[in-house]
Design a protein around this nucleic acid. Structure first.
Lengths: 340, 340
DNA sequence: GCTTGGCACTCGAACCCCGAGAGTGCTACC
DNA sequence: GGTAGCACTCTCGGGGTTCGAGTGCCAAGC
C-alpha cells in the first residue's frame, strides 16, 4: 500500500469534493482520475486515510469528505498555486491604478478580491504603527475647539476634535503646527513619541496645558488606531452558491461583523512566514467560523509589510484559486502603494 | 359590517402575524383580541379585506397574511409610534456622546440602531453638498505630488492626491493654500464653485495650470462625494430570527452591498415630508428587497437636515418599535452634531 | 504482500399514503 | 348585520417502503 498513492487519493477526494459538493465514493474516484487501481484498492486507502483522520464519512454508506486536517495536508503538500493568466493580471493592475486615494485603493482591492474569489474579501488598512506620519494639521473649529488631522505616508488620514478649554490664539496654533511638523518629519512611531514629549520645552509655561493635550490626543489616536481597521466585501457571496452552509450562515455573519475576531486572526497569521497563510475550519479558533477557511497574505510598500488582505469562504473552497487571487491582489497593492 | 371593525381586524392581523410569524385565522383572532364578535363575522370581514387587497392567504385553508398594501395602511393609519423609555433614551445619548470624531459618531449610530431594532442599520454620512467647507489643506508628497485635504464643518474629511506635473514650489503652495482658505471661508457649495473659478486671477499666468488642476480636483471631489457614502451594521440580524427569509437571503445581501440601491432609496425617501418614512416590500422597487421594509428618517445639525439614518428588516417587522428607535437615534445624532 | 472481484450489509433520500387539524366559504337562521 | 353549523380544501407530519450508493470484508489472483 504505497504512501504516495494514498496522498494522490486524498488530493483527488479534496478536488472532487470541492467541485461537486458531495461526498465522494471509491467508484467515482477511479472514474474521474487515472489512479490505475480498482475501487476496492481505493477503499482500502480510504479506510487508512480515515483512520489517520484526513477524511470522514457523514454517515455510514456515504462517500468520504475531507476533514480540516485533510484540507491542511492538501494545502501544505498537495496543491500548487497557479498564477493568474496575463489578462487577469492586467485587469487587476489597471483596476487598482485608477484609484484616486487610499480609501479608494482599499475599496477597490476588497471588491476585486470578492469578485475574483466569489467569497468574502477582507482588506486591512495600512497600520498606523508601521507607517510614518507625513503631516499634522491643526484646524481651529469655533472659538475653543481644535481639529487635529494626522496624515500618514500611506495616505491614511485620521482626525480628532479637541476641546482646548480656553480661547485659542491663532498665532499660537500656527507655531504649534509648525513645531509639530518639524517634530514629525519622516519619523517612525517609536522615535516620534519621545520627540513629542520634549515638545513642551519649546513653548512658554502658560501654553503647556494646550501643548500637552494636543500631544496627548495625537498619541491616543496613534495608539487607538493601531487596533487596525478592516473592510469587508462580498458577504452576499456567502449566500450565493446555494446550499453552501445555509443554516449556519448567521454565526458566520456575526463573526465577520466582530472586527475583533478578524483582527485577531489577521495578527496571528501575520506571524506566519509563508507568503500566503491559510486557516482552515477549527483552526480559526472561532465557533462561528468552524465551516469556513481564511486565506490571507501581507501587502506593504517599499519599507516592507504593513497590513494584510484575505478571503474567507467555506472550508470546501477552491484553495489554489483563492490563494492565487489573494496573492496577486496583494502584489499589485504593494506596487501601487510603493509607487505613489 | 362596520368599516371601523374591519380596520381593527387588519390591525390585529398585522400584530399577530408580526408576533407569531404564522398566518392568522379567524378563531385565533377572536381569542387573542377583544373584538366582540364571533369568528364567522371575522371571516366575512377578512373576505372583504382580502378583496380590497390588504391581506392574502398563502394557500387555501391557511390563515391570512398582510400584503404590502395592508402593512401600508397599518403604518399610515393604525399604528402609533410610542417613544422609547427614559432609560433607553439615556443609554442612547450617553453612548453617542462618547464618540471621538465623526467616523466614530457614525459608527456608533449604526451599531446602536442595529442593536435596538435587531435588524440591519444604515447611516448615511453627512452630505458634502449640504455642508460647508471649513478648511482646505495642501500637503506636498514627494517632489511633484500634492495631497489635497478637504475638511467640512460636519467634521468629514476627504483627501485626493494630485500629480502636479512639475516640481512644486513650497512658497507657491503656501500662497495657494492661503488663498483657497480665504475663498472657502464658511461658504456653501454653490457660491464656492464660482469663487473658486475666479481664483486663477490672483496668480501669475505661469502658475495657472497648477491652480486650475487643484481647483479641478476640489470640484471633482465635491461632485463625486455628493454621491453619498453609507455605512451598514447588523447584517447578521438578517440570518438570526431563524426562518425569517432563509432562502431569499442572498438577494437581500446583494442589494445591501449595492450602495447605489440604498442611495436611491434614501434620496427618494428624503422627499417625503413625514418625520419617519417607510418603504414596504415592493415599494422599494428592487427585486432583492421584495420581502424587506426600509424605515428611515433624517438627521441634521443646526442648519437643518443633512442626511438619513434607517433600519432594514423583513416586511413582517415591528414597525412601531423600529420607527421609534430610528427616530430616537436621529434626534440624538442631530443634537450631537449641532453641539460640537 | 498488495491488488482485485464479489457479495452481503447499512443507511439515507425519495416517494407515497393517509389521517389529523386548521381554516375557509356558504347557507340558513336570528 | 351577526351567528352557528357544516361541508370542503389543503398543508403538515408520521410511517412505511423502495431504491441505490457506498462500504467493509473475504477469498482468490498476480
Amino acid at each position: 500500500m504505497s504512501e504516495d498513492r494514498r496522498l494522490d487519493v486524498l488530493r483527488a477526494i479534496v478536488e472532487d469534493y470541492v467541485a461537486t459538493r458531495e461526498p465522494v465514493g471509491s467508484r467515482a474516484l477511479v472514474e474521474r482520475h487515472t489512479l490505475g487501481v480498482s475501487p476496492a484498492t481505493i477503499r482500502n486507502d480510504m479506510a487508512a486515510l480515515e483512520d489517520a483522520g484526513y477524511i470522514a464519512q457523514p454517515h455510514t454508506s456515504a462517500g468520504r469528505v475531507p476533514t480540516d486536517k485533510g484540507y491542511r495536508v492538501f494545502v501544505d503538500r498537495l496543491s500548487t498555486v497557479k498564477p493568474l493568466s496575463a489578462p487577469e493580471r492586467r485587469a487587476i493592475g489597471s483596476f487598482l491604478e485608477d484609484a484616486v486615494d487610499l480609501d479608494d485603493v482599499v475599496d477597490r482591492s476588497v471588491r476585486l478580491i470578492a469578485q475574483l474569489t466569489q467569497q468574502v474579501a477582507v482588506v486591512q488598512y495600512p497600520s498606523l504603527r508601521r507607517s510614518a506620519l507625513r503631516h499634522i494639521e491643526l484646524v481651529p473649529v469655533g472659538p475653543r475647539h481644535l481639529l487635529v488631522v494626522l496624515i500618514t505616508d500611506t495616505g491614511r488620514v485620521e482626525q480628532r476634535t479637541l476641546d482646548a478649554g480656553l480661547d485659542l490664539d491663532e498665532l499660537l496654533v500656527a507655531r504649534l503646527r509648525a513645531q509639530l511638523n518639524v517634530c514629525v518629519a519622516g519619523r517612525r512611531l517609536p522615535e516620534l513619541t519621545t520627540a513629542l514629549r520634549d515638545l513642551g520645552a519649546a513653548f512658554e509655561p502658560e501654553h503647556a496645558p494646550l501643548v500637552a493635550s494636543v500631544v496627548a490626543i495625537i498619541e491616543e489616536t496613534l495608539a487607538q488606531e493601531s487596533e487596525e481597521r478592516v473592510v469587508l466585501a462580498g458577504t452576499a457571496n456567502l449566500a450565493r452558491g446555494g446550499a453552501d452552509f445555509n443554516n449556519t450562515l448567521g454565526p458566520v455573519l456575526e463573526a465577520l461583523e466582530e472586527q475583533v475576531v478578524l483582527l485577531r486572526l489577521l495578527s496571528e497569521m501575520a506571524e506566519d512566514e509563508a507568503a500566503v497563510s491559510v486557516r482552515i475550519g477549527s483552526e480559526t479558533q472561532h465557533v462561528g467560523l468552524l465551516e469556513t477557511s481564511f486565506v490571507t497574505t501581507a501587502y506593504g510598500d517599499e519599507h516592507g509589510a504593513i497590513a494584510r488582505v484575505g478571503s474567507i469562504g467555506p472550508t470546501r473552497m477552491n484553495y489554489p484559486g483563492t490563494m492565487a487571487a489573494v496573492r496577486a491582489v496583494a502584489r499589485y497593492l504593494t506596487r501601487i502603494l510603493a509607487g505613489s
